[in-house]
């Protein structure tokens, strides 16, 4: 009787805050304890521990599902089992502090960097670099998908004056140590790619009419578009390459004509003036 009364008193003495901190620690850092009965009532069907375990199982399963949704290519690259091992450790080390699930994978690239197996080795392996690049890229794709921008674009054609051509507002250029964007596209198009070899790559991730587009670039195109994004002037960009990098004006113009056709088609541009 005394023991029961003690247990009952112990249970009722827990404050609201203590109860919540106890339950949260049981979700984020579950450890064997013998105080379940102090907090949770048993029922005729389940013990106190079994009731709590429903939340414990759901916590990790739910966030694992979200991590896979945010990092489909990385999940493919690592294999689901290994990906989930990393995800579990990540969620333990970086539990969510945000009200939005959109931020869930925010630190995943950092976590992979911190936990890479060759972290202390003098000679690094290259595959962790690919995984980290891919993780960082995938998180950015999620951010850019929802980026705030005015997308009331004017149609552009070959007839649009060059001085009126501007890059669309959501336009991000990336340079990678591995062919990250190609690999990403292969995964999201269900083409089951194998892990790539190290090879510098360039891409642009843009949004047009709220749809994302991901396009491969070569090195010159990448730097040309980087300058164009900075100046928003095709004339100034061409002049920069001719005067600062000694490009032959005719050769650059010839390249530009080809790029322009392709990039107009791919939706790189909007126009500052309405077509007549």
């Amino acid at each position: 009787m005394d023991i029961k009364r003690d247990a009952s008193r112990k249970a009722t003495q827990k404050s609201f805050a203590q109860i919540q901190q106890w339950m949260q620690s049981q979700l984020i850092n579950p450890q064997f304890r013998n105080d379940y009965e102090d907090f949770v009532k048993s029922t005729s069907k389940l013990s106190a521990k079994q009731h709590l375990q429903i939340y414990q199982r759901s916590y990790i399963a739910r966030l694992r599902d979200c991590m896979i949704a945010q990092f489909p290519a990385l999940s493919h690259a690592l294999g689901k089992e290994l990906f989930l091992e990393f995800a579990d450790l990540y969620l333990h080390q970086y539990p969510s502090k945000s009200y939005t699930l959109g931020d869930l994978g925010q630190h995943f690239g950092t976590f992979l960097e911190e936990t890479r197996p060759d972290k202390d080795a003098e000679v690094k392996e290259s595959w962790p670099d690919f995984m980290i690049e891919l993780a960082n890229f995938e998180f950015l794709v999620n951010i850019i998908f929802d980026e705030k921008a005015d997308e009331n674009h004017q149609k552009t054609t070959l007839e649009t004056k060059e001085e009126d051509l501007k890059l669309v507002p959501v336009f991000h250029l990336y340079k990678h140590q591995f062919p990250v964007s190609l690999y990403y596209k292969e995964v999201v198009n269900d083409r089951n790619p194998t892990l790539p070899f190290e090879a510098e790559s360039y891409c642009v991730l843009l949004r047009r009419k709220y749809r994302l587009g991901l396009f491969e670039l070569n090195r010159v195109q990448y730097y040309f578009l980087t300058k164009l994004k900075e100046t928003q002037s095709i004339y100034k960009t061409k002049q920069f390459f001719i005067t600062q990098h000694n490009f032959d004006a005719n050769e650059l113009e010839s390249h530009w004509k080809q790029w322009k056709v392709k990039w107009l088609e791919e939706g790189f541009f909007t126009s500052t003036s309405r077509l007549m």
Binding site: S58, A61, R62, D65, Q70, N142, K185, R211, L212
Partner: peptide
Amino acid sequence: TEIVSNPVDFMVTNVAKDFVE
């Protein structure tokens, strides 16, 4: 088999579905 309570994965946008090539 048991699946997740209060599912939230539908709240994570499947960005891959929204790509144009």
